[in-house]
Nucleic acid binder design. Structure first.
Length: 871
RNA sequence: GCCGGGGUGGUGGAACAGGCAGACACAGGGGACUUAAAAUCCCCCGGGAGCAAUCCCUUGCGGGUUCGAGUCCCGCCCCCGGCACCA
């Protein structure tokens, strides 16, 4: 250690495996507070010095770095991925460290079991977040980002993760976004990227378009400003072409259940039918229509088609509703209603999404004057427009069944429309009045020849019946929309398209990539609906790659989520600048073996990454379609009852804590707070526990090495406990049950030191690799002091337990009388019921409770419990 | 409203597959060592009764199944996260 300085090692060109004894240059590092208190004790735990020493050793020897050849030839590859951070100006926060430490524990564990673990980290540096911060500070993001990245890198090294710094990515680096643009071009060529004018979510504060996924309850997810609707030409990725595959593949993934469920809900599959309602010609006076007879043939007027999940209720459809934006509104509105309809449409357009989507808002709407034929009843029904019908879902129009849809019920009540019953519950008849929409199970009533059918069968029969007339079609609808990737901002990869008046949108040829983002001092977005790049004429003026004529570059940049949708594909191939992915290396290392990240990305990032991977598979660029074999979410760190945030003032800055206690202690503490997948409650004093534990561990191992008694045999009971501990930790660590694994090691160390006894080396040496994933520096130091000349992480140092030693020799059997504990007996394992009963009856407290009572039954669970049932 | 997850000491949290509730740790109290501190070590630590042995109560609430329920079933209450006029 620092006390035995050895010559400075020469940097060895040996990567990853096969390095020789680590050495250190002997310069005493700057000491933390705890270190300085220990400076007069030669064998005291000095985390600051130990951590400096080992970080330098790992760095000098390239312990965690892969040479391209090592990547190519790996025999037991394990790709351990964690979600890369956005490099904020504030630096790493505790939440980042929690996530990275937890993922690093997993990677280090895998490595201790002999896997070759690739654990990269990078920076999600493009995006509105960085840009807004740069604007606020009046700095150019091109200057700010490298500073933040440098600071993050320093902090990341300090926490002792086994990151491969030779394979890092920065999404704002042209060497990276060149390939992000390449992906855009591939999608364009495959017909998966298209430009269309569409109503989009516009954040008036961020002054850009947001994807649906970035609108939370009608508010911008970033600044919580109410989102407006705008119509702009945008680039969309056709993720909806993959909907069913994205849904079906979920079954094949080893992911957290909650994450799978979130994806499933987001995709939002609904089964139902599209039904067609013919609009009746506007006739003066009474609207026609032969009552009682179903429509027999399609007619030549406009048709309104609706999507419904309840075609069985079509007999109860007493009116129709179109979304105010529905294209047919203008065509069908009768002249006398035109003014009122116009006014309503304008009102609806003005409302922002929050106001419009208020569920408890009183229903509003207006009659268009048009009538439709209900295809089932043949009755004319009025067509309304109302803002509770959304243009973006289904067909933008509904058949309203007030008896069996609560929203329709409320609307019908406001406007005095009829509310017939067409489904009757078990206790109900055809005429049972409706107090509210009836949504339960039941059979059809008031539905002509379908009366009496259970509603599911009725639905099928009615669709078949209407299908024959060409008025219905079974249909599956999804909630998922195409992914709008255009952003009218500066800090992102320019979309690699050139607009030519004669050729239309032309992709920038692959060999001309990247389209460099120019340095622009005035990058403030404005309300114009176009990117600040549209103000840089010398940049956007260009020639058409096809006809050579004058053309204009696309001035929008792409969504940050596109940057992060493929970064894991790039990491192993960063040695190649001629291709996005090295085929051989990609086949060897992907898909990712284990991905650990926050649940906040359960739908956005994970869905986009799956989509991009699927698209690349179809185009032949990769040979798998699901990028993450296994995904585990980590929890959140709570402090003072809330998620850490600057506004709540409950943020913990990690650097001073690492300075005072060391990264090892901090890591162990974070992992000990609570179950990793659930998170935990950060309490400042709590770090004392893990600190004391590592301290005792250090003292115990050092004294076992130094003292002559340390060479003696292990105490049999301690040894038994050791094997049980190895078993427990080996089962829990791979399942991310870190808190209980640490507790087990603490318990074991307490047993080793019980009564202040001298520990034997044989009792503690296996503890070192067990703690190594959590506290890698102290583990290396102790491993060295135990006389090993190679890293504890080299080879397969994870200890095995001896099943015979795990088996109990004596057991404690609980003795109950009528289920209440009245004593325990110690007996050899495997003691029979008769023997156990005899032992139990020897106990005074047991006999006292049996006295004068008849034992009716005895329940015996071998090695665990004996229960006398008396009465 | 719908879909997840949860409710256990002063606190964070343990508890295999229905079998000794409260592991491990923090905070608190007492002690050893020390001029003093740090570090380390030992003891106590859910509530109530009792000198004690011991007994009673206790896992959000109310029922149930069982020899036995924190764990399973039924009905509630509350908290957290996600989705939400999605037809």
């Amino acid at each position: 250690g620092p006390l035995n300085p050895t010559p400075r090692p020469t940097k060895l060109a040996v990567y990853h495996f096969g390095w020789i004894r680590p050495a250190w240059d002997g310069q005493p590092p700057k000491q933390g507070i705890q270190d300085s208190m220990e400076q007069d004790r030669p064998d005291a735990y000095a985390p600051g010095a130990i951590e400096k020493k080992w970080q330098k050793t790992w760095e000098d020897l390239g312990t965690n770095r892969f040479a391209p050849e090592s990547l190519r030839n790996a025999r037991k590859p394990f790709y351990n991925l964690m979600m890369f951070p956005y490099p904020s100006a504030e630096g790493l926060h505790v939440g980042n460290i929690y996530a990275f430490a937890g993922a690093d524990v997993h990677g280090r564990y895998q490595r201790l079991t002999g896997k070759e673990v690739f654990e990269p980290i990078g920076f999600d540096a493009f995006g509105i977040h960085s840009e807004n911060f740069a604007l606020k500070q009046g700095v150019n993001p091109m200057d700010l980002t490298p500073r933040n990245v440098a600071n993050f890198t320093r902090q990341l090294r300090r926490i002792g993760g086994m990151f491969d710094w030779d394979h890092t990515v920065n999404t704002s680096d042209p060497a990276y976004y060149r390939w992000t643009q390449w992906i855009f071009v591939q999608l364009f060529r495959a017909g998966l990227a298209e430009r269309k004018e569409a109503p989009v979510n516009w954040c008036p504060s961020c002054m850009t378009v947001l994807a649906n996924e970035q609108v939370i309850g009608g508010l911008c997810e970033r600044c919580e400003t109410p989102v407006e609707q705008r119509h702009i030409a945008q680039w969309f990725f056709r993720i909806t072409d993959f909907t069913q595959r994205l849904l079906d593949n979920l079954k094949t993934l080893d992911w957290s259940d909650t994450t799978l469920k979130a994806q499933e809900n987001w995709i939002g599959r609904s089964e139902g039918a599209t039904l067609t309602f013919p609009v009746l010609p506007a006739v003066e006076g009474a609207p026609g229509g032969g009552a009682g007879e179903a429509v027999e043939s399609p007619h030549d007027g406009p048709l309104i088609s609706v999507f419904t999940t309840r075609p069985d209720t079509v007999f109860g459809a007493t009116y129709m509703v179109l979304a105010p934006e529905h294209p047919l509104v203008g065509a069908i509105t009768t002249p006398d209603r035109r003014n009122e309809v116009e006014v309503y449409m304008q009102e609806a357009a003005k409302l922002d999404l929050v106001a419009r989507q208020k569920v408890d808002k009183t229903k509003t709407g207006v009659f268009t004057g048009a009538m439709c034929l209900n295809p089932a009843t043949g009755e004319p029904i009025p067509v309304w427009i109302a803002d509770y019908v959304l243009i973006e879902y289904g067909t933008g129009a509904i058949m309203a069944v007030p008896g069996h849809d609560q929203r329709d019920f409320e609307f019908a009540e406001v406007f005095g429309l009829p509310i017939p019953r067409v489904v009757a519950g078990p206790e109900e008849g055809a005429d049972t009045p409706l107090e509210e929409a009836y949504l339960g199970d039941g059979t059809l009533v008031n539905s002509g020849r379908f009366d009496g059918l259970p509603w599911r069968d009725g639905a099928r029969a009615i669709v078949e019946w209407l299908e024959e007339k060409g008025l219905a079609e079974a249909k599956v609808n999804y909630r998922l929309h195409d992914w709008c990737i255009s952003r009218q901002r500066y800090w992102g990869p320019p979309i690699p398209i050139i607009h030519c008046e004669t050729c239309g949108p032309v992709p920038v040829p692959e060999e001309k990539l990247p389209v460099l983002l120019p340095r622009v001092e005035d990058f403030k977005p404005d309300d114009s609906g176009v990117s600040p790049l549209a103000r840089v004429e010398e940049w956007y003026k260009t020639d058409c790659p096809e006809c050579g004529g004058e053309a204009r570059r696309e001035t929008d940049v792409s969504d940050t989520f596109l940057d992060s949708s493929w970064y894991f594909l790039r990491y192993p191939s960063t040695d190649r600048d001629d291709v996005p992915m090295d085929t051989e290396i990609t086949e060897r290392w992907l898909p990712v073996d284990c991905y650990i990240g926050g649940e906040e990305h359960a739908v956005l990032h994970l869905l986009y990454a799956r989509f991009i991977t699927m698209a690349l598979k179809d185009m032949g660029h990769v040979n798998f379609e699901e990028p993450f074999t296994k995904f585990r979410k980590h929890g959140l760190i709570i402090r003072e009852g809330a998620k850490m945030s600057k506004s709540k003032g409950n943020v913990i800055v990690p650097d001073p804590i690492i300075e005072e206690f060391g990264a090892d202690t901090f890591r162990v503490y974070l992992m000990f707070l609570g179950p990793f997948p659930e998170g935990g409650d950060y309490r400042d004093e709590g770090i004392q526990g893990p600190y004391g534990f590592l301290h005792r561990l250090f003292d115990t191992v050092v004294s076992a090495v130094a003292s002559p008694e340390g060479d003696g045999p292990p105490d049999p009971q301690v040894e038994q406990k050791l094997h049980k501990t190895i078993k427990q930790v080996s089962e829990q660590v791979p399942n991310l049950q870190y808190n209980t694994a640490i507790a087990a090691m603490m318990e074991y160390l307490n047993a080793v030191r019980a009564g202040g006894r001298q520990a034997a080396r044989a009792e503690v040496e296996h503890l070192v690799p067990l703690i190594a994933p959590f506290a890698p520096h102290i583990a290396e130091e102790l491993w060295e002091r135990l006389g090993n000349d190679r890293s504890v992480f080299e080879g397969s140092n994870w200890p095995a337990f001896d099943p015979e030693k795990v088996a109990e020799e004596t057991v404690r059997i609980a003795v109950q009388v009528n289920g209440k504990l009245r004593g325990t007996v110690e007996a050899p394992a495997g003691t029979s019921q008769e023997e156990a009963e005899a032992l139990a009856r020897d106990q005074e407290n047991v006999t006292r409770h049996l006295e004068g009572l008849t034992v009716r039954r005895v329940v015996f669970v071998p090695n665990r419990l004996l229960n006398f049932v008396v009465g």
